[in-house]
């Protein structure tokens, strides 16, 4: 029994990556849930909006790097982020003006908007491919580790190393800042409250003199910002490939639905639920089991419930269970 080493191994393989991935999913799911709450449809283009924003962050990062601008041990992408966000916001607002507004004025059925958003997804996906190509892009620079595994091992004398990558720390910190800012905005500001009011009861909001165009615009700005940040953090942490972002759609939707579509708090909880479930089910527990089980008990086997190729199945199963047991989600509204 070696609890300490087991815990460090757990932190290294599950806890830290789970917090990171969960933060990325939560930011993505927040965008989905806000759009669902205010515009009342499931935005299939959200994954590709994330890819679109990230593509521009990468372009700005390259540009900064070519000019020799960096921000020390942090990734240059953080400097490029505001510019990427600006482009993303311009894109989503343009899309709303050219595409979605027409259907909103018509009061089209939500499913029509879902199909329309699939068309937007095509366009964005094509644009990203044309702009930056389909190959894998690494754009993380700065120092690699916040907590170097070697330093950790030397300092603690434990057999197991614990590594915290800079990108992981950046992800969690940025996510916390974003969520705090978003909740402050929704709970404390007049505009934020009017957004909640509009999501809660559209007719009454109109009757109270809340301007729907403004609410919709603010929603897109926030969703675009969150999408760009989520996509960039994911890309920094892993790498950027456009079809991977399409694949992120399922876990993100699962997170939003698990938490309850329309509930921001639910989206965050859902993000971590999905991330940790994926890791718990697809991690190899052999190393951790080795520290806990008595000597000689450890057989050969990876102690892995599902191969990592079936990550998508984990989100899916959770999604299905929620749909069956509690379709309105954990913090379910309507």
């Amino acid at each position: 029994m070696d609890i300490l080493n087991a815990f460090v191994a757990f932190a290294n393989f599950v806890l830290v990556p789970g917090l990171t991935y969960g933060s990325q999913l939560a930011l993505g799911a927040l965008g989905i849930t806000l759009i669902f709450g205010v515009l009342r449809f499931s935005n299939f283009a959200h994954g590709d909006t994330m890819a679109f924003g990230t593509a521009f962050v990468i372009l700005f990062t390259w540009w900064f790097q070519s000019m020799g601008i960096s921000d020390g041990f942090l990734p240059t992408a953080l400097l490029a982020l505001p510019f990427g966000i600006a482009v993303t916001i311009a894109m989503v607002l343009g899309t709303d003006r050219v595409v979605y507004r027409f259907y909103r004025r018509q009061r089209a059925k939500p499913i029509i908007l879902v199909i329309v958003s699939a068309g937007v997804m095509f366009v964005m996906n094509g644009l990203v491919r044309m702009i930056i190509g389909t190959s894998e892009k690494n754009f993380s620079d700065g120092s690699r580790f916040l907590l170097d595994p070697k330093v950790f091992r030397d300092a603690t004398g434990l057999a197991e190393p614990l590594a915290i990558k800079t990108t992981q720390a950046v992800t969690v910190v940025v996510a916390i800042l974003c969520v705090a800012a978003l909740f402050w905005f929704l709970q404390k500001t007049r505009t934020g409250k009017s957004m909640r009011a509009y999501a809660d009861n559209e007719d009454l909001a109109l009757l109270s003199g809340i301007n729907p165009d403004r609410v919709v615009m603010v929603t897109w700005i926030i969703a675009g910002t969150l999408a760009c940040i989520a996509g960039t953090l994911y890309g920094l942490d892993k790498s950027f490939r456009v079809f991977v972002y399409f694949g992120l759609m399922l876990p993100i939707f699962a997170a939003a639905i698990v938490g309850g579509l329309g509930s921001p708090l639910g989206a965050i909880v859902g993000g971590y639920v999905i991330a940790f479930s994926e890791l718990l089910v697809t991690s190899a527990w052999r190393k951790i089991a080795g520290y806990i089980l008595p000597d000689g008990w450890l057989g050969d086997g990876l102690y892995q419930a599902l191969s990592t190729d079936y990550k998508v199945a984990v989100s899916f199963v959770i999604l299905i269970v929620v749909l069956l047991v509690r379709p309105q989600g954990i913090f379910g509204g309507k």
């Binding site: 449809f41 499931s42 299939f44 939500p110 499913i111 879902v114 694949g247 759609m249 399922l250 939707f253 699962a254 639905i257 079936y310 998508v312 199945a313 989100s315 899916f316 999604l319 299905i320 749909l323 379709p327």
Partner: peptide, 14 residues
């Protein structure tokens, strides 16, 4: 109806 869309997306990927 959106749930059907998302669930079918998932089963196809699996």
């Amino acid at each position: 109806e959106d749930y059907l869309a998302i669930a079918t997306l998932g089963i196809a990927e699996i």
